[in-house]
């Protein structure tokens, strides 16, 4: 700063202008940050806030932005819903039924659906790793005849829209007698996750030096050993990214699950949630609580693993 004023003829003036410019910049950044925070968080906050309101409070006009008397009854209703004891609006509270809303009998499906979602996501993750890691290593480090063709092939499968797969999937799954099974979801989710995983991993493996691969092989590793003994231990960040993406994609997937699931045997969380929203008799506060439950796990995962997600997103999306 000081030597700038020396070289600047109107020193004082220049310095003042500089300071003003900096102040303006700070203000713009501050305003931007505030607007962005509100834009992102306001809708979610509203959802969370209304999940803690009672049925009576949630229907007030204008709405209560902050619950007057926060309550956990919506969540309790979800966690205590069981086959034996069907919780309805009547059994839950003595409020005026005219204010609308009751706990649907399907509430008991919510926790099993979460379990189904978890199971499907976990299986899809495992299969992605088993299939994706060797493929990515081959594409990144082996110069073989047909490599470019393979890359293009996987890129193309990456852009097939899921909705274009629905009809053929449905008929195949039906003929295999796999409708309403978790297996049908695991299988079809591979179509929407594997290409992405492969490209996250290819990108990462390409970033590791070729000479490392050569050193391993001269040291006596077969291709397989070079992958397992040298590359796998070094690729943890990309493996984490793959696990996260695959898990979240499966956890959040809706369209395919809508086609192939019918009962609680295979229904995943998004399906049960979607069913609530189309039922006009269900209490809003209850739906919101269910929505919050669906949001919490992925958001926690995203916040904890932010670093891996950002790098993975860039690798996978840019490459495919």
């Amino acid at each position: 700063m000081s030597d700038k004023t020396l070289t600047q003829p109107g020193g004082i003036d220049y310095r003042r202008r500089q300071r003003l410019a900096r102040l303006a910049q700070t203000l713009v950044i501050l305003a931007g940050a505030i607007v962005l925070t509100i834009y992102v968080l306001a809708p979610v906050t509203w959802l969370v806030s209304s999940s803690f309101q009672t049925e009576a409070e949630i229907v007030s006009v204008p709405p209560h932005w902050i619950p007057d008397e926060p309550t956990l009854q919506n969540f309790e209703a979800i966690f205590s819903a069981t086959e034996e004891e069907e919780i309805t609006y009547e059994t839950r509270s003595g409020q005026d039924p005219a204010s609308g809303g009751f706990i649907p009998s399907t509430a008991k499906n919510l926790l099993p659906a979460m379990w189904n979602s978890f199971l499907v996501a976990t299986l899809v993750v495992i299969l992605n790793l088993l299939v994706g890691v060797p493929a990515a290593y081959a594409l990144a480090k082996i110069r073989f005849w047909g490599r470019d063709a393979s890359v293009y092939f996987i890129l193309i499968t990456r852009v097939i829209p899921d909705i274009a797969l629905v009809v053929p999937f449905f008929l195949v799954i039906k003929n295999l007698g796999m409708l309403d099974t978790i297996g049908s979801l695991v299988l079809t989710y591979l179509a929407v996750t594997v290409p992405f995983s492969v490209f996250i991993l290819v990108q990462y493996f390409e970033g590791l030096p070729d000479e490392l691969d050569k050193a391993a092989r001269v040291d006596g590793c077969s291709r397989f050993q070079a992958l397992v003994r040298v590359f796998l231990p070094l690729s943890l960040p990309s493996l984490v990214a793959v696990v996260l993406f695959t898990f979240l994609t499966s956890w959040n997937e809706f369209l395919l699950a809508l086609m192939f699931t019918q009962t609680e045997a295979s229904q995943t969380l998004p399906i049960v949630l979607a069913a609530f929203t189309s039922d006009f008799t269900i209490s809003f506060s209850f739906i919101n609580a269910a929505g919050v439950l669906a949001i919490v796990p992925p958001v926690i995962v995203a916040v904890i693993f932010e670093r891996y997600i950002v790098s993975g997103l860039t690798a996978g999306a840019v490459k495919g």
Binding site: P209, E211, L212, K214, A215, R217, V218, D219, S222, Q225
Partner: peptide
């Protein structure tokens, strides 16, 4: 393949694990 040849190699970047 290299793992079946009795050769050792030193690389420019050293390529240590």
């Amino acid at each position: 393949p290299p793992h079946k040849r009795d050769v050792a190699m030193v690389f420019q970047s050293y390529a240590l694990y």
